[in-house]
């Protein structure tokens, strides 16, 4: 029963829903890893890296669904996700550099008064 297969169904052939579940579980695990990192780490840069990990997980789920339904809209949307990730990285890192220049520290707790 535990015999491993070396290749899964080729592109135009439909993919089994169990295979889809594998990819979705992996995507959920990656997302949760990014979430835990975002909550626990106190370095601003690592917090943003963790959001990138969550983007990654969402992209993987989109591509897996796109493959399952043989519909390329999912891949088109991943291009959009990449765009948003790039924009987010540019803006967030510019802000991080500004914040670092102010307090000479990357600790998120330095800016605890921003929570309002």
């Amino acid at each position: 029963m535990l015999e491993l297969v070396l290749c899964q169904a080729g592109y135009p052939e439909p993919m089994a829903s169990v295979t889809l579940a594998h990819y979705l579980v992996l995507s959920a695990a990656m997302f949760v890893l990014g979430l835990v990192g975002f909550i626990t780490r106190r370095n601003l840069i690592i917090m943003f890296l963790c959001t990138e990990l969550m983007f990654q997980a969402a992209g993987l789920a989109l591509i897996a669904f796109s493959r399952y339904h043989l519909n390329l809209d999912g891949q088109t949307f991943v291009i959009f996700v990449l765009t948003v990730a790039a924009a987010e990285a540019a803006m967030a890192l510019a802000l991080v550099v500004l914040l670092f220049r102010r307090r000479e520290s990357l600790s998120s707790e330095e800016w605890a008064e921003l929570k309002g």
Partner: peptide
Amino acid sequence: ALFLAAEDSSLLPSLFF
């Protein structure tokens, strides 16, 4: 757990997964 979820081992994704 993912192995147990598949009734048929041919439905599993490839080893590279």
